[in-house]
Nucleic acid binder design. Structure first.
Lengths: 201, 201
DNA sequence: GATAGAATTGACCGGTCAGTTAAATTATTC
DNA sequence: GAATAATTTAACTGACCGGTCAATTCTATC
């Protein structure tokens, strides 16, 4: 029950990383197995197909990321600070991955999701689901900000949706430009957008 | 000199369409040739590689699209109307392509660009170039809007950059959701963002 | 109508792709 | 420690990949 999980989890982790850095089409099952130090037969013992691996890897990745997001968006934290911390977190992760891989990688769900959206419905649907995970956090933060009056925005649902699009656009630009610069304005752009009344450091 | 161009242009057109609908990795040279009714040898007579085709197809597509953009952004047209017309144009094209292919396809430069950004520098650079083409139009429209006082925005460069990101984000979301809905708010979102003073129909 | 260069053909290459299989090894349970 | 199931191994399949090539046909010019 132990070693089993190690193999499976190794495949999930390696697969996620390779797909994130490259693309779904450019990473083969052989690539994943080689990097994971695992035989191909084992891959197909745990996953019925390459597409199933990427879906499982999405789920595993989100499972591991969620506690961090819950912490960032804890109601203990003032609402605008939650959003600011999210921006910092995104930038940190991007910087870290860029150093690790030598490329700016953008949002993993978005990259593979956009690549494969018209070709595999199961992956498409999962990408959609996870691309929208962070939206709910932003939504409740903005709702709280509205209640405490620290923001001129009126509709938390619409605002969160738009912020989500903005961040996605930024991350895609950063990936295509292979440059972290597009991310620099993220925090101020969002604060501008929701009409944050305090303009702290 | 006539039939020659027809073959080459057919390959450019079919390639662009297939890459736009699917992805760079999922469309083979054989697919393109079959759809174009052209032999593989001819493909490699005109293009040294698959990557070169996609770059050439980008260039051809932009060449054909540019007059339309020049028209939309003619200084004859009031600046905010230029931007509104651009939004309408984007939505129209997306709707048309969605009907044609059965999928919402998003921005062609962005989709392939994001897919391939970390793998092929030549394609990456071209994607970056064309993803930013529309930015210059928006920039000058906003500058004009500022001069005529129809807008509260201050910095046309920053505003255009952010609008570009917004549109990219929207198009990626639309593609991944396979739904035109995310595009609906484009015009009002942009007008909100730059602080358009008139709120016409 | 001879000639040369461009366009076209279709068979072909080695390599790689996702996925399979049967046998061997390891853990688990009684 | 025997029986059973889970896991791992490595060789294998057949289709398809991007790209090559020599042979052929077209076309423009003199």
């Amino acid at each position: 029950m132990k070693k089993t999980c190690e193999t499976k989890e190794k495949l999930l982790e390696v697969g996620f990383d390779l797909f994130w850095d490259g693309s779904y089409g450019s990473v083969s099952v052989d690539d994943i197995c080689k990097r994971a130090g695992i035989n191909k037969g084992s891959f197909y013992h745990f996953f019925p197909s390459k597409a199933d691996l990427v879906v499982a890897a999405y789920e595993e990745h989100w499972k591991q990321k969620r506690p961090h997001m819950d912490h960032i968006f804890s109601p203990q934290v003032p609402p605008l600070e939650r959003i600011r911390n999210m921006c910092k977190y995104i930038c940190e992760v991007q910087k870290e991955k860029a150093e690790q891989y030598g490329h700016v990688c953008g949002c993993p769900y978005t990259s593979v999701g956009s690549e494969i959206a018209t070709l595999d419905e199961k992956i498409r649907a999962k990408s959609e689901q996870f691309m929208n995970c962070s939206r709910k956090y932003v939504e409740s933060a903005i709702a709280d900000a509205i209640r405490e009056g620290s923001v001129t925005a009126k509709d938390p649902v619409a605002a969160a949706q738009r912020i989500n699009m903005l961040i996605i656009g930024m991350l895609v630009e950063a990936r295509v430009q292979n440059d972290l610069k597009p991310l620099e304005g993220m925090e101020s752009m969002i604060m501008d957008y929701i009409g944050a009344k305090t303009v702290p450091a």
